[in-house]
Design a protein around this nucleic acid. Sequence first.
DNA 1: ATGTTCTTGTGAACTCTTTCACAAGCCTCG
DNA 2: CGAGGCTTGTGAAAGAGTTCACAAGAACAT
Lengths: 192, 192
Amino acid sequence: MCDRGAELVSSAELADGSGTTAAQVRKDLSNFGSFGKRGQGYAVEELRARLESILGLVRPRRVAVVGAGKIGSALLGYRDLTSRGFEIIVAFDIDPDKVGRTVFGVPVLPMNELEHRLAADGIEIVILATPPAVAQEVANRVTSAGVAGILSFAASKLETDGSLAVRWMDVALELEGLSFLISAATNGVEEP
Amino acid sequence: MCDRGAELVSSAELADGSGTTAAQVRKDLSNFGSFGKRGQGYAVEELRARLESILGLVRPRRVAVVGAGKIGSALLGYRDLTSRGFEIIVAFDIDPDKVGRTVFGVPVLPMNELEHRLAADGIEIVILATPPAVAQEVANRVTSAGVAGILSFAASKLETDGSLAVRWMDVALELEGLSFLISAATNGVEEP
DNA sequence: ATGTTCTTGTGAACTCTTTCACAAGCCTCG
DNA sequence: CGAGGCTTGTGAAAGAGTTCACAAGAACAT
Ligand SMILES: NC(=O)c1ccc[n+]([C@@H]2O[C@H](COP(=O)([O-])OP(=O)(O)OC[C@H]3O[C@@H](n4cnc5c(N)ncnc54)[C@H](O)[C@@H]3O)[C@@H](O)[C@H]2O)c1
Ligand SMILES: NC(=O)c1ccc[n+]([C@@H]2O[C@H](COP(=O)([O-])OP(=O)(O)OC[C@H]3O[C@@H](n4cnc5c(N)ncnc54)[C@H](O)[C@@H]3O)[C@@H](O)[C@H]2O)c1
């Protein structure tokens, strides 16, 4: 909307564009203050700035990827992250064939430099893209290196202290969700 | 648990392993019938079978990937999907350099064969991994081909009729969530 | 048999989220 | 300047989802 030069946007328009309702948009935003203009809507540029600050993206977040395999490499080439406020600074891998290369402009470093470089580069978020079997071990090292958040692609439970935020992305789980919806829409539940 | 040969599992154990509470597990399962054994727990093998049938995964679901780029190719090599009940049968791309090849054992076909092959191969779910700009167009074609669900990696709104289920996976959105949690844990919201 | 120990299944209570509905405020136009 | 048209912000109502707490049953030892 900023790019299109729109000045104002109503809660109804925002709701439309994001699959929710106008009341929901207003209620949600009101949790962070009241910065709309009655009779007008929200000033687009101000709203953008507010959301940026609510999300903690006033400065770009510094991100590292651990595991430069299939999914890890794909992420290293995911250009859109920059425009959403994230910079992938560095990647790590244990495979000697991968270490030392540069993938989509991002250097792949060996695991023995992990803690040192996470700290030196001021990494705030680690994207975990190793096999599930080693995810816990990597998470431990990342935690002790003082990183603030982990986004894990490994579908394994991670035991962490409360000192960092953890989220998962699980493709199979989403497919299961789709499968459930599809079943519900057609057969209903099929007896086992 | 089946592999480990466990016979029975309690709601408390299930809760433990999945980050929820025992009461929640029981309430959720009770929505689909009552198949636990009082005093004992749930029979592991029966529970597996029930969940499989609830999720509609008694038979593997047939999946196609559209867009064999960075993320699309990674998915074609995602072996764990098979064990979770999904078979990636085929991929499609518009780039002549990609069409005709086989990526991780999956053939990449040209877009002009899309509708025909989706139908011929009995594809139920399409994973959308094209640039966002063409996602809507592809979604339209996929819809009219009678596919039942779409999992989109493109962070663009898709307009679809109610005939299919749609889900999104948005890496940047998850990172934004992490960033918010991190901010909340440290500064609080920073003024814009 | 009976008592003990366990764990499910589930109403009822509680908490959290969403929707409703309208006063308050801003802008434009006559 | 006041009326009319919009849209926000927000209490209150309605609706969902979660947790509590306990009766009902199952196994097993005595
Ligand atoms: N491929 C996909 O599309 C996909 C999709 C979703 C999730 N996942 C998950 O993401 C993870 C990675 O999957 P992938 O398909 O990219 O696998 P992959 O084998 O291609 O990549 C894994 C990478 O991790 C590296 N690695 C192994 N042990 C390591 C260690 N101890 N420390 C650091 N690096 C180590 C390997 O050298 C390899 O480069 C898995 O947990 C997988 O389940 C994959
Ligand atoms: N790279 C990542 O890690 C990543 C992560 C999450 C989401 N995404 C999203 O996934 C999508 C793909 O990203 P990518 O990084 O793989 O890009 P990419 O450019 O590597 O791949 C896109 C592929 O789509 C093909 N394509 C283009 N137009 C097409 C059309 N009309 N029909 C069929 N195929 C077409 C291209 O030939 C290319 O192979 C984008 O929407 C991106 O935002 C990417």
